[in-house]
Design a binder for these strands. Structure first.
Lengths: 196, 196
DNA sequence: TACTTTCTTGAACGATCGCTCAAGTATATA
DNA sequence: TATATACTTGAGCGATCGTTCAAGAAAGTA
C-alpha cells in the first residue's frame, strides 16, 4: 500500500557527511542540506529527525570509512605498510571534501557547546587509535617494529602526528606531502634496536 | 569636553580572545560577547565596528601572545631549550580557555566560509613557523642541532607536531603530556650526527 | 477503480542572528 | 554653571536559524 521514498537514504548520508565535513556543524544550515540532499523540510525531518541526528549518522559513516580504508590497506600491504601509507593517503588527491579530519574538526568546534556530538567524535577517534595500536602490535609480531616500544604509546603518537598532518594539509602554503613522508620514514626506523 | 569610555579596550580584546578561542567564531554570539565584555550593542559597535573586526583583533592578540611567550622562553633557555619547553607549556595548566590553537581552530572552522579571517589565521601560523625556523637556525649556530638538517623542514614538522599535540590535548582520555615529552625528546636527538 | 498508506510540498512558526539608531547620561572645558 | 562632546542604553530592525504541520500527490492493495 505505501509509497516508496524518492531518495536512497545511504546516498543522502554520504552527501551530508561530505557537506558537514567541509563546512562543519554551524557552517552547514538546513537550507544547505535541503539543497544538497534535494529534500524539502518535511521530507528531511521525516527521514532524519533533526540536524543533530543526521550529523551523528554522518559522523558514524565517516569513521566507518576511515577504518575500512586502513583495514584494506593492511590486508594488501601488511600492518607496517598500511601505517606508512595511510598518512599520504588521507591528504592525497582532491577527492575528499577536506583534508582535515572530520572527527577532529567536530571535537574542536563542538566541545564547548554540544557535548553529545563532540563526545561521539572523540569516541570514534579513540576507536581509530585502538586500531592503530592493533596494527603496531601486528607489526611487532611480524618483526617489523621492535618489541621495545609500547604499541599503545606508538598509536597515541601516530594519532597525534596524523591530526597535525591533516590540520597542516588544510592550510595553504604548507607542503603536507613532505610531512607525511617524514611520518612514514620515522615508522621505518622503529625496526632498529638502537638505544633511544 | 568628551566623556571617557567606561572600559579599557585592551582588556576587552583579551576577554574577547579568550571567548572566541574557547567557543569559536560561530559558537560565540553577540549576546555572549555583550555579556562577557559588559557592553550593550551600541557601545560594542561603537568600539569595534563588527563581530568580524573584533575577531580579527582577537586573532592578532592571540598570535602576539604566542610569539612573545616563545621569545621569552628563548631568552631564558636558549633556542633549543625554548623549542623543547614550548610544547609542554601550551598544553599545560588550566589557565587557558582551550588547549587547541586558536589559529588552527579558526582555519578549520572558517576556511570555507570566511576567507578573510581564515587567511589571517593562516598567516599568523606561517609567521610562527618562521620564528620556529629562526630558532632552529640559532640552535644550529650554537651546535645544539646538527647542520645536516634543513631548519625550514624542521620548523614545518615542529609546527605540525604542535598542532597535532594541541588537538590531542583538547580530547578527553589522551595523555597529551606524554606526547609533548616525546616531541621534546626528539629534538634532543637532533644534535647527533648519526646517519638518517 | 476505490481506498489506504506513505511520502512530498512549502508556508509559516518562534527564536535567535548580527546590527542600527534615536534618546538619554556623564564629563571636561569655558 | 552652561555648553559641547563624547559614551551608554535598549528597543527593535530585517534576515536567517532549526523545525512543524496541514494539505496534496503518488503508489501498493482490494
Amino acid at each position: 500500500m505505501p509509497r516508496k521514498p524518492a531518495y536512497d537514504k545511504n546516498t543522502l548520508i554520504d552527501r551530508a557527511r561530505d557537506l558537514f565535513w567541509k563546512q562543519g556543524w554551524a557552517g552547514t544550515s538546513l537550507k544547505d542540506l535541503e539543497r544538497t540532499l534535494g529534500l524539502n523540510p518535511g521530507s528531511f525531518y521525516a527521514a532524519f529527525g533533526s540536524k543533530d541526528k543526521l550529523f551523528e549518522l554522518a559522523l558514524d559513516r565517516y569513521a566507518q570509512g576511515g577504518t575500512k580504508r586502513l583495514r584494506d590497506l593492511a590486508a594488501e600491504h601488511g600492518a607496517l605498510g598500511a601505517l606508512q601509507r595511510y598518512p599520504g593517503l588521507v591528504i592525497d588527491g582532491s577527492s575528499t571534501p577536506a583534508k582535515a579530519c572530520m572527527l577532529a574538526k567536530t571535537v574542536l568546534e563542538l566541545k564547548n557547546q554540544n557535548d553529545q556530538l563532540a563526545a561521539r567524535a572523540n569516541a570514534h577517534l579513540s576507536n581509530m587509535e585502538n586500531l592503530f595500536a592493533d596494527l603496531f602490535r601486528e607489526a611487532q609480531a611480524a618483526g617489523e617494529v621492535s618489541d621495545r616500544y609500547d604499541a599503545d604509546a606508538l598509536a597515541r603518537r601516530y594519532q597525534s602526528d596524523l591530526l597535525g598532518l591533516r590540520v597542516s594539509a588544510e592550510r595553504v602554503g604548507v607542503d603536507a606531502k613532505a610531512i607525511a613522508d617524514e611520518i612514514a620514514a620515522r615508522l621505518a626506523e622503529l625496526a632498529h634496536h638502537e638505544a633511544s
